[in-house]
Deep mutational scan, measured.
Amino acid sequence: IEKFKLLAEKVEEIVAKNARAEIDYSDAPDEFRDPLMDTLMTDPVRLPSGTVMDRSIILRHLLNSPTDPFNRQMLTESMLEPVPELKEQIQAWMREKQSSDH
């Protein structure tokens, strides 16, 4: 029984630690959010139409349809242009958020 109590305490400790580690990014500025999924972008790319999306989301879309989801023009992965300035701004915002939450 004592071992179970210790195990339960350890589990509670881990759960509390994980809860502290989770950071809420739901208040991200609109320009940091993917327009299709409304999630925080981690690897922004510009489509030929000028729309900026997260790379993982547009690549997932391209698996089903080789088109720009906003104007239905033909689109391939090679046409995606990285946006390193925005990526750095997002990373800086995330770092600031992490340091203010801890």
Score class of each variant (00 low, 15 high):
residue 61 H to Q: 02
residue 66 P to R: 08
residue 54 D to A: 00
residue 74 M to T: 13
residue 59 L to V: 09
residue 20 R to P: 13
residue 24 D to Q: 11
residue 91 Q to L: 10
residue 92 A to N: 07
residue 35 P to T: 02
residue 71 N to C: 00
residue 71 N to K: 01
residue 15 V to E: 13
residue 2 E to N: 11
residue 57 I to N: 06
residue 71 N to I: 02
residue 64 N to H: 06
residue 36 L to Q: 01
residue 96 E to P: 05
residue 38 D to A: 06
residue 4 F to M: 06
residue 102 H to F: 08
residue 25 Y to I: 03
residue 64 N to D: 04
residue 17 K to V: 15
residue 2 E to M: 11
residue 6 L to M: 12
residue 69 P to T: 00
residue 6 L to V: 11
residue 6 L to F: 11
residue 23 I to V: 10
residue 56 S to T: 06
residue 94 M to V: 14
residue 22 E to T: 09
residue 30 D to K: 15
residue 101 D to Y: 06
residue 91 Q to E: 14
residue 80 L to M: 04
residue 78 S to V: 03
residue 39 T to F: 08
residue 19 A to E: 13
residue 52 V to L: 05
residue 30 D to G: 08
residue 88 E to V: 11
residue 7 L to F: 14
residue 42 T to Y: 04
residue 87 K to E: 10
residue 51 T to A: 08
residue 8 A to S: 14
residue 86 L to Q: 04
residue 39 T to M: 04
residue 43 D to T: 02
residue 73 Q to G: 03
residue 26 S to P: 06
residue 30 D to E: 12
residue 46 R to S: 10
residue 92 A to T: 10
residue 73 Q to K: 09
residue 60 R to W: 01
residue 62 L to T: 00
residue 81 E to V: 13
residue 14 I to L: 13
residue 78 S to R: 12
residue 16 A to S: 11
residue 70 F to I: 02
residue 38 D to N: 04
residue 13 E to K: 08
residue 6 L to H: 08
residue 2 E to D: 15
residue 61 H to E: 04
residue 13 E to R: 05
residue 32 F to I: 02
residue 52 V to F: 06
residue 68 D to E: 01
residue 34 D to Y: 01
residue 79 M to T: 04
residue 64 N to I: 09
residue 91 Q to T: 14
residue 27 D to V: 05
residue 54 D to V: 00
residue 20 R to Q: 14
residue 97 K to E: 15
residue 19 A to G: 11
residue 84 P to L: 13
residue 21 A to K: 05
residue 63 L to H: 11
residue 19 A to L: 02
residue 10 K to T: 12
residue 83 V to W: 11
residue 76 T to G: 03
residue 15 V to S: 13
residue 14 I to A: 05
residue 64 N to E: 06
residue 3 K to R: 07
residue 19 A to S: 07
residue 39 T to Y: 03
residue 85 E to D: 11
residue 77 E to L: 03
residue 23 I to N: 10
residue 7 L to H: 10
residue 82 P to K: 02
residue 11 V to F: 02
residue 84 P to A: 13
residue 77 E to M: 06
residue 68 D to H: 00
residue 54 D to E: 11
residue 37 M to G: 02
residue 74 M to G: 05
residue 61 H to P: 01
residue 99 S to P: 12
residue 12 E to D: 13
residue 100 S to I: 14
residue 88 E to Q: 09
residue 20 R to A: 13
residue 88 E to K: 09
residue 65 S to C: 02
residue 14 I to T: 09
residue 74 M to F: 03
residue 80 L to Q: 01
residue 84 P to S: 13
residue 95 R to M: 05
residue 96 E to Q: 09
residue 25 Y to C: 12
residue 41 M to S: 00
residue 7 L to S: 10
residue 100 S to H: 05
residue 78 S to H: 03
residue 20 R to W: 14
residue 54 D to Y: 00
residue 17 K to Y: 07
residue 7 L to Y: 11
residue 54 D to N: 05
residue 96 E to M: 02
residue 35 P to R: 01
residue 85 E to A: 09
residue 51 T to I: 15
residue 29 P to A: 04
residue 12 E to N: 03
residue 23 I to F: 14
residue 38 D to E: 03
residue 12 E to Y: 13
residue 52 V to G: 00
residue 9 E to T: 08
residue 26 S to N: 15
residue 62 L to M: 14
residue 76 T to I: 06
residue 36 L to V: 15
residue 62 L to Q: 01
residue 83 V to P: 00
residue 43 D to Q: 02
residue 79 M to I: 05
residue 49 S to A: 15
residue 11 V to L: 08
residue 73 Q to H: 03
residue 81 E to G: 06
residue 44 P to T: 01
residue 21 A to T: 10
residue 1 I to P: 02
residue 40 L to V: 14
residue 46 R to I: 07
residue 3 K to H: 11
residue 33 R to T: 05
residue 3 K to D: 03
residue 49 S to Y: 15
residue 48 P to R: 03
residue 32 F to R: 12
residue 1 I to M: 10
residue 59 L to R: 09
residue 96 E to T: 15
residue 87 K to Q: 14
residue 10 K to M: 10
residue 82 P to R: 06
residue 97 K to H: 12
residue 92 A to R: 06
residue 55 R to C: 02
residue 64 N to K: 02
residue 17 K to E: 14
residue 92 A to V: 12
residue 9 E to A: 15
residue 41 M to I: 08
residue 93 W to Q: 04
residue 71 N to Q: 00
residue 70 F to C: 00
residue 16 A to G: 11
residue 73 Q to A: 15
residue 17 K to L: 11
residue 16 A to V: 09
residue 80 L to R: 00
residue 67 T to I: 03
residue 3 K to M: 06
residue 67 T to Y: 05
residue 87 K to R: 12
residue 102 H to P: 11
residue 16 A to Q: 04
residue 14 I to K: 14
residue 98 Q to E: 14
residue 49 S to P: 02
residue 39 T to V: 02
residue 19 A to T: 13
residue 5 K to T: 08
residue 65 S to Y: 06
residue 22 E to D: 09
residue 37 M to R: 02
residue 28 A to G: 13
residue 43 D to Y: 04
residue 61 H to L: 00
residue 12 E to S: 09
residue 99 S to C: 09
residue 22 E to N: 10
residue 28 A to E: 00
residue 48 P to H: 02
residue 43 D to C: 08
residue 92 A to I: 03
residue 9 E to Q: 08
residue 35 P to L: 06
residue 10 K to D: 12
residue 71 N to R: 00
residue 47 L to P: 01
residue 39 T to A: 04
residue 33 R to N: 08
residue 52 V to A: 05
residue 70 F to L: 01
residue 87 K to M: 14
residue 93 W to R: 02
residue 48 P to A: 03
residue 35 P to S: 01
residue 61 H to N: 01
residue 74 M to V: 10
residue 79 M to L: 08
residue 43 D to V: 03
residue 35 P to F: 00
residue 64 N to V: 04
residue 31 E to A: 10
residue 61 H to R: 01
residue 77 E to G: 07
